[in-house]
């Protein structure tokens, strides 16, 4: 049965080859003078000139102490700050993803109570600025001086709500609301036929979700989650407000004592760029993994592209 299907093209090729050998001339390649795009050249020159002016302005500005930038990039206080930025971002993101998945499942559940509670949570945490939420957590001691969880736990709120805790709760709970919507969209994007096929095979709800729906939803969930994390790396600079000593706060402190305010902001920029760039690469590979099956051919990794180019050059030289 397959043979029938497979053979047709196989039969077709030899006959085509015969006709070629039979003397038909190969078609002559078109040699035409391409259209000249003068507009492209002009706009290219204008943009290059503007970029050169900008670079020159920064490079020659007398008030910028470029050596201070170099001096402080690997300063231990700055490195510790960058480490804390990374730590709070990762922890808040983990909290956001876990809670987000729970909220997404709650919203999609048939139980009206859980779905309504999840809706209200998302409504509140998406509807208020994260900066305000951070301040709310930080100042919680004003209305609840003592944290009393009955027999389990009791302590002064100021001891519990350290800058770290306020930052983690503020960023993590806010992120959960966004992650919930991303996860919900991902789960709903999977065709209903997939669930039906799985159920028809006798697979349970849980197995259908775990083996069939979630792996396909991941393809929709992973890219925006990567964006969320990169956003989180930058949004974490807001925890400056709750006195958590992350990258921005670390550099600003040095800046205000050494009078190199702008220089230290450049240092902060460098580290933010390093972190976001590294995670962008990581995200590319992650997306590639979850594209299995949905693309006929996976896009090449940058390394594969380089290798292919090298081989291509080599063979051309060989000719």
């Amino acid at each position: 049965m397959t043979d029938k299907f497979d053979k047709e093209p196989a039969d077709a090729t030899p006959s085509a080859a015969v006709s070629k050998e039979g003397g038909a001339l190969p078609p002559e390649a078109i040699k035409a003078i391409p259209v000249r795009h003068y507009g492209r050249w002009v706009s290219g020159v204008v943009v290059l000139a503007l970029v050169a002016l900008l670079v020159n302005a920064f490079a020659t500005a007398e008030k910028i102490q470029w050596n201070a930038v170099g001096e402080y990039v690997f300063d231990s206080t700055v490195l510790a700050g960058a480490g804390r930025t990374l730590l709070i971002s990762v922890l808040a993101m983990v909290m956001g993803v876990v809670l987000g998945v729970v909220l997404a499942v709650m919203r999609l559940s048939k139980n009206p109570v859980t779905s309504w509670v999840a809706w209200v949570y998302i409504w509140f945490f998406r509807g208020t600025p994260v900066y305000v939420q951070l301040l709310l957590w930080f100042n919680l001691a004003l209305i609840f001086p003592v944290l009393n969880l009955g027999p389990i736990y009791k302590d002064e709120m100021v001891d519990v709500m350290t800058p770290f805790m306020a930052a983690l709760l503020g960023l993590g709970l806010n992120e959960a609301a966004y992650m919930a919507e991303i996860c919900r969209a991902g789960l709903m994007a999977v065709d209903e036929g997939q669930t039906e096929a799985s159920h028809a095979l006798g697979m349970s709800h849980a197995k259908t979700l775990r083996r069939i729906v979630i792996p396909q939803a991941m393809r929709v969930i992973v890219p925006p989650t990567g964006n969320e994390f990169i956003n989180m790396l930058k949004t974490s600079s807001l925890v400056y407000a709750v006195t958590y000593n992350e990258l921005l706060r670390a550099t600003s402190t040095i800046g205000s004592t050494s009078y190199a305010v702008m220089e230290m902001l450049f240092v902060a920029c460098i580290w933010y760029l390093v972190m976001t760039s590294v995670f962008s690469v990581f995200q590319y590979y992650l997306e590639r993994r979850y594209a299995r099956g949905s693309l006929r051919q996976l896009p090449p990794t940058p390394w594969q592209k380089i290798k292919a180019n090298m081989l291509g050059l080599g063979s051309e030289r060989g000719k």
Partner: peptide, 8 residues
């Protein structure tokens, strides 16, 4: 519409 699992 077949409904094969596309990731397998």
């Amino acid at each position: 519409r077949f409904n094969l699992f596309p990731h397998m």
